[in-house]
């Protein structure tokens, strides 16, 4: 966790306004495809995520804003026996994680060109999480809140110079402090890619 905060602070500290031109604002919508990294509760690639956000440029290459994202991860486990200290349980089941990060963001554009504008972004905020097990007709669910940090690298791609529309492509790492001890979940980490579009306005 300390490493992630340190890395994020380094990213933030590198974000500078080297042009004092207050600019436009933008809204964006991304499709998020990714996988959890660190737990066996829900594993594998899932494509049922997204994010929506708003940025306002406080100078030419630096924007601040906010975003809300969502991710769904589920895994099916064949019928098997799980042994505990005082017994055992046999069933098949789905495990499911729902993650909803709500965050403030800072975005630094680097060498923005006519067509491609690479950027680094850091989001920080809260993450609402749900962890569920579905078996037969039953559901066990826990909910929790945690602190989240989401560093991201990507690029905006404009096919027509000056267009209000551009495509987004990025990769992001999510770390959240959410815990669910009943499922032996100490935090949430995911690695994902975003594909989407943004619309610029003044």
């Amino acid at each position: 966790m300390k490493k992630i905060i340190t890395f994020s602070l380094i990213l933030f500290s590198g974000m500078v306004c080297y042009g004092q031109q207050k600019g436009h604002s933008e809204v964006y919508l991304n499709w998020n495809l990714g996988a959890p990294l660190n737990n066996s509760f829900a594993t594998g690639f899932n494509a049922a995520g997204g994010s929506i956000g708003y940025n306002t440029f406080i100078c030419k290459n630096f924007a601040v804003g906010g975003a809300i994202g969502w991710n769904n991860y589920n895994t099916y486990y064949e019928r098997q026996t799980y042994h505990t200290k005082t017994g055992a349980i046999t069933t098949d089941m789905y495990t499911y994680i729902f993650a909803l990060p709500i965050m403030a963001t800072a975005t630094q554009y680097i060498n923005a060109g006519k067509f491609v504008s690479p950027y680094i972004k850091v989001g920080a905020g809260a993450l609402y999480g749900e962890q569920s097990q579905y078996y037969n007709i039953y559901e066990d669910r826990t909910t929790d809140w945690g602190f989240t940090v989401i560093p991201e690298v990507g690029a905006k791609i404009s096919f027509i110079p000056g267009s209000k529309w551009s495509l987004n492509a990025s990769a992001q790492y999510l770390y959240a402090t959410n815990k669910a001890s009943v499922y032996n979940l100490n935090n949430i980490q995911t690695l994902s890619v975003n594909i989407g579009a943004s619309w610029k306005f003044r």
């Binding site: 349980i89 069933t91 098949d92 037969n136 039953y138």
Partner: peptide
């Protein structure tokens, strides 16, 4: 999901 009983 299987309709087999959950056995505990």
């Amino acid at each position: 999901l299987s309709s087999d009983f959950v056995v505990e």
